Simulated scan of single mutants.
Amino acid sequence: MNKFLLTFVFLASSMLCFSQDDLLDILDKETVTNDKDNIVTSTFKGTRILNGHSVENRKAKQLEFIISHRFGRINSGFDDLFGLDESNIRFSLEYGFTDNLTGGFGRSSFEKTYDMFLKYSLFKQRTGDNSFPFAISLFGSVAAKTLEEPFPLVQRSFSENLSYVGQVLIARKVSKSFSYQVSPTYIHRNTVTIAEDPHDIFALGFGARIKLSNRVSLNGEYYHQFNESVSINTKNALGFGVDIETGGHVFQLILSNAITMIEKSFIAETTGDFFGGDIHLGFNISRTF
């Protein structure tokens, strides 16, 4: 609950410090289509669909600060205040080196994990004579788990705690109101819990955005694993959320069966059953400078 309160204190203070026009100016600039090259922009409003990355990058020399928060299971009952007593939080900074290259660094309370990534825009969706139907970005990340394992009692080296993710993000803006994305994903974990668990996991992600108004959109996201760990009863990650632009920030309100926010974890290690009530309330708050 302390983390929950601190997050909203940050939010309240930021809303006093920054005008709404700051964010809207940035969003307006990103929404304009480059008429010269007929480039389709703003396929998604932000760099995340929900848990996973979207095809979007930050603009050159823009710095984005993101707070991501996930609470415990809603079906945990009143004793845990329907999940609010439990929380997982991630802070991250993301910077646009160029209009096509974004890098980021983050730290999650879950397993005390540090992660960093690069995302590069390979192709833009275009209209006109030189039309191209999709926007394609390449994403790569590395994560280091620093929480010591209680069992088995084996001292791990730094490299043994590393995991890697590679994705091809393929998106299309069908209309002003609807966009979708397909994300072939490869995950490698240097260390697994038991020998039967795969070091390499392949998954396919699906995401979509429906724009409800100028300030509100409905998002959905699903990742299907083609091979799974056997030491834990993993489930495919599923989530729904709402994007809201207000007060100089972009809010994402999320319902998901995943409590983690980095690809290695929410794609390959989610154990909650969404339709069984294992739903985590969460949110992402971003501020672009």
Rank of each mutant, 00 (worst) to 15 (best):
L63S: 09
M116F: 09
A12T: 06
G140S: 12
C17Q: 05
E228L: 01
H69S: 09
F65P: 02
F71L: 08
N130S: 13
F82P: 01
S131G: 12
K145E: 03
T234V: 11
V168Q: 04
H280K: 12
P184K: 12
E269I: 02
L27Q: 05
G205I: 10
L50S: 03
L5R: 07
I285L: 15
S231E: 02
S286V: 06
T7H: 01
L27T: 05
I89V: 15
D37Y: 12
G72Y: 01
L212M: 12
K3I: 13
G83I: 02
G103W: 08
I49A: 06
S183V: 14
T43G: 12
S14G: 13
G128M: 11
S177L: 15
I170T: 13
L50F: 09
F251V: 08
A60T: 13
G46N: 04
T246I: 05
S179W: 08
L101M: 11
K235C: 03
F10Q: 07
Y114R: 07
F82I: 07
N57F: 10
A144T: 04
S231V: 08
N130P: 05
F65Y: 11
L204K: 00
L281F: 01
T33P: 07
F4D: 04
Y186N: 03
S286T: 12
N88C: 10
I254V: 12
L138I: 14
S177G: 10
F4K: 06
R107F: 14
T271M: 15
Q181P: 09
V168K: 00
G96V: 05
Q125R: 13
F151K: 05
S137D: 11
L253G: 04
I232P: 00
G247I: 03
S131A: 15
Y95N: 02
A60W: 07
K235F: 06
Y120G: 00
S141Y: 04
I49G: 02
R189H: 10
V32N: 09
E56C: 03
V174D: 14
S19M: 11
N233P: 02
G239M: 05
Y180N: 15
S108C: 12
V55S: 08
E263L: 00
T191N: 10
